[in-house]
Design a binder for these strands. Structure first.
Length: 322
DNA sequence: ACCTGTCAAGTCTGG
DNA sequence: CCAGACTTGACAGGT
């Protein structure tokens, strides 16, 4: 099994390259000259896109072909204050430049809209802003000229005291989305509410790929063994150009089980790779650790001494279990 | 240069 | 019904 590793949004090695620079709503309010404030927002967004490009070059230089964009590229996006501001026409070229690097170097990218994107909420305003957020994320991918193989990954949402009903509500809301949005989505199990079993069943029903988060699974499962789900997980990716993707992280501590640790524990990685190797010959692993790309490089280094591992380059390995 | 507190969002819990 | 916890990186304000 060929395994490629990726990281999220920012680098611990590339300095002054935040792709998430922003302005608070209250700071925006305090600027008397609204036009000047809007210009500053556009400048921040432009910096975020240019830094994203720098981060992509960093990836390329280290053989990394899997990267998740920051979901905060556009400051105050969706906020009432900036109504009428068209980031997309103003930053057309910046978006295009990012996409150009991605396509030229065949990097797998995507977004993870924040957990306030809740499609199954009983509140109409929450659903509406969630759809608007998804639309914005897809617009960014389109502005980069990246097709549906680059996904927006979301969770199912809240349970509202009736998880089964909440799941059905998600399916209903999903079915009401434009096909354009649907085709860019993939679904991930979360650490509190929707387990692998529940999320996978929903993903199968709506025809979206399923992203396994091994850490969330550990926080939120019902004694179910992952081995029961691996074949079905892989099947949800069968029509996709890229291989199945999974999220890998370790708990910060026993008292902070849900929080992400600085680095990934080798054992967690090995456990994941063992399971995946039974069902797929390609896997993309998104590292979700505080130390970002440093955690990726450290994990590769640690994996190198495992008997089942052959290191291919700085960011990928071959797993060959005895 | 560094440190601490605040900011955004939605859900859930506890009072 | 309301306040606070949860989460995260960056802002904001203090020293």
């Amino acid at each position: 099994m060929l395994v490629r590793f990726g990281f999220v949004a920012m680098s611990m090695q590339v300095k002054n390259a935040s792709p998430s620079k922003t302005m608070t709503a209250s700071a925006f309010e305090k600027i008397a000259d609204r036009e000047a404030a809007l210009r500053k927002l556009v400048r921040l967004a432009q910096e975020n896109l240019q830094n994203t490009k720098r981060l992509l070059y960093h990836c390329i230089g280290h053989d990394i072909r899997f990267y998740r964009f920051s979901s905060r590229l556009l400051p105050l996006a969706g906020h009432d204050y900036i109504e009428g501001l068209d980031y997309f026409s103003l930053l057309k070229d910046d978006f295009y430049q990012v996409g150009e690097v991605v396509r030229k170097h065949q990097i797998r990218t995507g977004f993870h809209p924040d957990h306030f994107t809740v499609l199954n909420s009983p509140r109409c305003d929450v659903v509406a802003s969630s759809i608007a957020s998804l639309d914005r994320h897809v617009k960014m991918l389109e502005a980069m000229e990246l097709d549906q193989s680059h996904k927006c990954n979301i969770h199912i949402g809240g349970s509202y005291n009736n998880k089964e009903k909440a799941g059905r509500n998600f399916i209903n809301q999903f079915s009401l989305l434009d096909r354009r949005l649907q085709s860019y989505l993939c679904l991930e199990n979360d650490d509190k509410t929707f387990t692998v079993a529940e999320t996978l069943a929903i993903a199968e029903e709506v025809g979206a790929p399923f992203v396994l988060d091994i850490h969330h699974h550990r926080c939120n499962h019902e004694g179910d063994l992952l081995t029961d789900y691996w074949p079905r997980i892989v099947t949800t990716w069968k029509d996709e150009p890229f291989p199945p993707k999974v999220h890998l992280s370790s708990p910060r501590s026993e008292s902070q089980m849900r929080a992400h640790a600085d680095y990934v524990h080798l054992d967690d990685a090995v456990e994941l790779l063992r399971g995946a190797a039974e069902v797929t010959d390609r896997l993309d692993v998104m590292i979700e650790a505080k130390r970002k790309d440093e955690a990726l490089f450290r994990l590769i280094k640690e994996l190198a001494s495992h008997p089942a591992v052959t290191v291919m380059d700085q960011a990928s390995i071959r797993w060959k279990e005895s």
